[in-house]
Amino acid sequence: MNIVVCVKHIPDPNLPAEMDGKTLKREGVQGVMDPGDEFGVEAGLQIKERLATGDGESGEGEVTLVSMGPAAAMEAVRRGLSMGADKGVLVSDDVLKGSDALATAKVLSAAIQKNGAFDLVIAGVESTDGYTGTLPGTLAEFLGVPHVSTVKEIVSADGGTLKVNRQTADGYHVVEVGLPAVISVTAGVNEPRYASFKGIMAAKKKPVEQLSLSDLDLSGDDVAVKQEVTELSKAEEREGGEIIEDDGSAAAKIADFLKEAKVI
């Protein structure tokens, strides 16, 4: 099975965000692979490993990482390769600076198609920097394949069908989807492995194809930014919360509060 995992290089979310006008400053800041994408890479690796050892179809196939970003984004690709992915594709082009989610989906779909036949594309539900959450669905549309969003568990993957549990507000849906397809996975779908020392050293030797926009037969017009950020404002600070003084009834009050919040 050929699995593609989309990975994004983002400014380290553990450091204070720096702004460049109305967009996030991306150059000259410490970057990391989006932590949400680690779940995607792990999911891809687990499916490949399960097929390699299980009774399903043979373990033929590979996990390819696809990313778009400046040259520094290679770090995110290497990170995924260190975890165990087989190869990478990085699309870098000055024209793509400041791209919106639509343009990104267009570029990634072109890169995925250029990479060859695929059975499954995995992405995180949303990025940890932009948080649009629109990319996986848009990507599926461009690729002309079904999309299953917010996958919280991959139940099985064989015989050209993928069975997953999909997170909903009240529980989960069990979904079977014919491949090829795009899925977006939630944080918590698995426990991403660390890149081991051996993995880090092996990643050096794994192939990464670097592509520009013209390699994908796309022009600047194709990826023109159609989204405009009109205003930025700080998130409201969290309120202080309610303090219950214990006059003997605190436990009951807390229980009522939790009931109201439908926690218990």
Partner: peptide
């Protein structure tokens, strides 16, 4: 500060 480390060192420290 890991900015000036080489790629493998940086990846190792991050791991």
């Amino acid at each position: 500060d890991i900015r000036l480390l080489d790629d493998e060192q940086r990846a190792l420290v991050q791991m």
